[in-house]
Design a protein around this nucleic acid. Structure first.
Lengths: 233, 233
DNA sequence: AGGAATTTGTGCGTATGTATC
DNA sequence: AGATACATACGCACAAATTCC
């Protein structure tokens, strides 16, 4: 197998396994065959397979236990990345939904941190909710090189799911900054509910192996109802 | 070389290089010797060195360029952990220092998130500065099982350096929450400078390989001068 | 309880491809 | 075009953790 294309073999193997998880051919908790066996069946070296498995581990889709085996960890959550850096209610949790206000393809705003390679980008403006409570307004800039057009239906729910499933992008690096700043003038008038000061959050995502940054976003959230959670492990 | 058997060799090599960067023995932009040469000098295999170099790359401290070489990318980072989750000036950067207000060994506050195994903990209260500007007040709870006593001199500068060098603890997991809350009554009167509302940051650290949580801390920072930066890669 | 079998972790060495100089 | 240097891939040996008998 492994008809060599442009991508490295271990990357192809990793994506093959990811598709297997997404398609339900590998289910949560399932134990994979031993590495050596898998490698022989796939016609590749153990080290190559191990690289692929390590990538899945980093994505939180796999748990490797020495002396035991490799176990699929396909969380019930829409995706795992979401749980690394997310907004949640001050009282904890909250079901995230979003209303897309506007999508446009524009030249990049020079005020943004640098990202991507194309001169233009998709600008997505959303109002985000947690369990129905308005939590944040958000402006996302996705580099123009990854898609021709993005429709509102595409990104109404889980944006990152769309990235991964439709655009083939997976997150390799995230950088966030929480500071101070004014509310943007395009925010809906009903938000924030209590009329207090919002916290701005500059979010920067990099995709794929090369780690080139491909998205920059600005989020303003309401600290009266919402908090920002970051997790590293 | 590489006598201590506790940590994997490639991890030891990575930390060695990190210390070299932190100590200024390797400066920004410097080109390392070829992998083969380095490996021979260190008495290790090329593959082992490569693992270490990949780790530095993931941490953003190194750029690997095929056909050219390995280049140090040190943008004035005191240490690696600090750069993952840190406070910095709104205008960027800032040299972190701290003044210890109080250290005590107490029973754990039940209001804190659970951490560690001992019934009591060291409580460290600090006022933190960035380039001399008061940035945050902080209350740190370190599980009592890791040290008998902690002196003010120990933790006046880099707390995490003390953890790793004196207590043998290295950070394996971090979880942060930024929300809303009141200023603690023990904060110095001169802080915050502008008298505005502070942002509370609940910080939870786990140490070692087992990932048992060993520290919980509460930080209140001044968004007028300071922002919180989180990075994942 | 204990030992053998299983399975992943670590480290080493090598060959070939590919980008840079 | 040639030399240099990192990227990828392969395979082996032993260590460490787990599982099973």
């Amino acid at each position: 197998m492994a008809e060599r294309g442009s991508l490295p073999l271990h990357t192809q193997i990793a994506e093959l396994l990811i598709r297997d998880v997404a398609a339900g051919r590998l289910i949560d908790g399932e134990r994979l065959k031993p590495e050596r066996e898998m490698a022989v069946e796939m016609g590749i070296a153990v080290g190559t397979l191990r690289k692929a498995l390590h990538k899945l581990t980093a994505m939180g889709m796999l748990q490797r236990v020495q002396g035991s085996g490799n176990y699929i960890r396909a969380s019930a959550k829409p995706n795992a990345v979401y749980s690394l850096f997310r907004l949640e209610l001050v009282r904890g949790g909250g079901l995230p939904t979003a209303r897309v206000l506007d999508i446009a393809r524009l030249a990049k705003d020079p005020a943004l941190p640098p990202f991507g390679t194309a001169p233009d980008a998709h600008r997505i403006r959303r109002l985000r909710y947690l369990s129905g409570i308005p939590a944040a307004v958000e402006e996302i800039w996705l580099d123009g090189s990854h898609a021709e057009v993005i429709a509102i239906e595409d990104v109404s729910e889980s944006l990152y799911l769309h990235y991964r499933q439709r655009l083939g992008l997976w997150i390799s690096r995230v950088e966030d900054r929480v500071g101070q700043g004014p509310l943007p003038d395009w925010a809906p008038r009903e938000f924030p509910v209590a009329g207090g000061a919002l916290l701005p959050l500059v979010h920067r995502l990099s995709f794929g192996q090369d780690g080139r940054s491909a998205e920059a976003s600005l989020t303003w959230y309401d600290p009266a109802t919402t908090r920002y959670v970051a997790r590293f492990s």
